[in-house]
């Protein structure tokens, strides 16, 4: 695994410069600027249609901006063919997106295979170990796995190419709460252990507050709040951000009252 020299966040690793994108006249992302430092774990939070997934997909060019540009490691992402760019990035999909006709090992090894370097059995085992699965899982088919196991394979696949940047699009949305909590913590640990820069799209503010060290709140295609979790909990970020923070806070308070009333 690549280990960066310094675990502390440094200069901008990824930068959105005045990016916009509309679909059939409806603005999805509006003139947005944002810089993301190396090593940071950024959560993109917002309601459905707020533009968070559209913004994320500009990075790996699943949807290019109509205007503006995205700079990754000092270069415009559009300088290279999309396939080559994507092989350098880790991407974890909403709804997993494992290839149903390939074994676990083939799914994990697909990125290296596309790049012409087949992953060895040892490498597959190592990646499985990263997501805490036994090497025996290599020969299973995706339909034989539970939802949580499948998403762990999805994470292992995203990490197979030693990416510096991990993009996650609502990665835990389809999982049950227990699995979701465990996998979130595991990803956070991997983020630190591998020195990744991670951007996670989620609609769940509690998940964002617990995992990320920077939370971007989007609404109507714009970033309306950009705060660390502690600041959001302390009331910063404006009405929309506070509206999203209020939900888990009220749930926590209600749980505390229930607990006290025992």
């Amino acid at each position: 695994m690549d280990q960066p020299a310094s675990p502390t966040p440094t200069g901008p690793h990824l930068r959105f410069e005045n990016v916009s994108r509309s679909f059939a006249g409806v603005v999805a992302v509006a003139a947005t600027d944002c810089a993301i430092a190396q090593g940071s774990f950024v959560a993109l939070v917002g309601a459905s249609g707020s533009g968070k997934s559209t913004l994320l997909k500009m990075v790996n060019r699943l949807g290019d901006p109509d205007q503006g540009r995205v700079i990754f490691e000092g270069r415009d992402v559009r300088d290279a063919p999309p396939a080559a760019l994507r092989r350098r990035l880790g991407y974890v999909f909403q709804g997993v997106g494992l290839f149903p006709h390939m074994t676990v090992a083939e799914n994990i090894g697909i990125g290296p295979r596309l790049a012409g370097k087949r992953a060895s059995a040892e490498r597959i085992a190592e990646l499985l170990e990263l997501v805490e699965l036994e090497p025996e899982y290599a020969v299973r088919m995706p339909h034989e796995l539970s939802g949580g196991q499948r998403q762990r394979i999805g994470v292992a696949r995203a990490l197979a190419g030693n990416p510096h940047l991990l993009l996650m699009d609502e990665p835990f949305g389809a999982l049950d709460p227990v699995t979701r909590d465990g996998l979130g913590k595991r990803v956070r640990l991997l983020h630190e252990r591998l020195g990744l820069t991670t951007i996670m799209v989620t609609h769940d503010m509690a998940e964002a507050l617990l995992l990320a060290d920077r939370v971007l709140v989007m609404d109507g295609g714009r970033i309306v709040a950009d705060e660390p979790p502690q600041a959001l909990l302390a009331g910063a970020g404006g009405d929309i951000a506070q509206g999203l923070v209020a939900v888990p806070r009220e749930q926590a308070a209600a749980l505390a009252r229930l607990d006290a009333a025992r």
Binding site: L85, Y91, F93, F99
Partner: peptide, 10 residues
């Protein structure tokens, strides 16, 4: 999802 995954893995 599978087709997007195909694009996404490069």
């Amino acid at each position: 999802g599978v087709l997007e995954a195909a694009d996404g893995v490069g």
